[in-house]
Amino acid sequence: MTGTDALPAYNFAYLDEQTKRMIRRAILKAIAIPGYQVPFASREMPMPYGWGTGGVQVTASVLGPDDVLKVIDQGADDTTNAVSIRAFFAKVADVATTTKTTEATIIQTRHRIPETPLEAGQILVYQVPIPEPLRFLEPRETETRVMHGLEEYGLMHVKLYEDIAQHGHIATTYAYPVKVEDRYVMDPSPVPKFDNPKMHCSPALQLFGAGREKRIYALPPFTDVVSLDFEDHPFAIQRFEAHCALCDARNVYLDEVVTDDRGGRMFVCSDTDHCETRRTEGHRGTGLPQTEGGETASTSREAAE
């Protein structure tokens, strides 16, 4: 019972202890069966579905008073969703928060994995809108559960086949399905497929929470995570020709930013912490001294093309 002075009515981290126990049991089960979607009794949270209610419940259940929390949305620490959730836990759990990947013990994320490799002891909590990767082609939950149970995953390849047939390559660029420990097919939440390789054998614990769908799944540290593909159309991540206009980083996931109404745009790190850290280290991108224009010659394209 460590509610703050300002909000004496709330239990530590908002959820009551019984609820947290229930969620922890679900998390433990999820860790025991990597990639398997464990149902849990998702609670109403003081935010709408789609804002990360699943991730918030998972975070609340694993959070301790000594943890240091980082929250990112599309890689950024300073967007509404990230700021709100960080403020929420600062208020209801009075925990330290940070924007530094390396300082955080728990990182809640929407749609990205930090560029800085995670380490043992860190927990990455994903906000998941739709946990069921098979739903695209098989809407019946009763059927998809049987398909998971019997390892009938041909349907996932039907989706990838359609991609190739329509676009000439696998056009799925986010929520790209993966197979976990050669058993369960899992939706990695809508992270870009660029981040899929980061899931593989990560030393950090990765937890996935879907609040509306009431499902939790997990990747324990050092789990095999393989992106699905065809022999003649192997999995490939996005490759960017541009460097970050601010920190000159290469081989990172870049966002395209429109800088004016005359076609000016530039590519910058989607991971704001990574970008800032590099700039404090002295890296400088070509876009930095210029206030407009930017790198108009840069383009991004699919590595698979």
């Binding site: 041909g154 390849h157 039907v158 086949y161 022999e231």
Partner: peptide, 12 residues
Amino acid sequence: GERLMAIGDRHY
């Protein structure tokens, strides 16, 4: 092709 993929064919 679905049945082929269901029995493990992985060559597009």
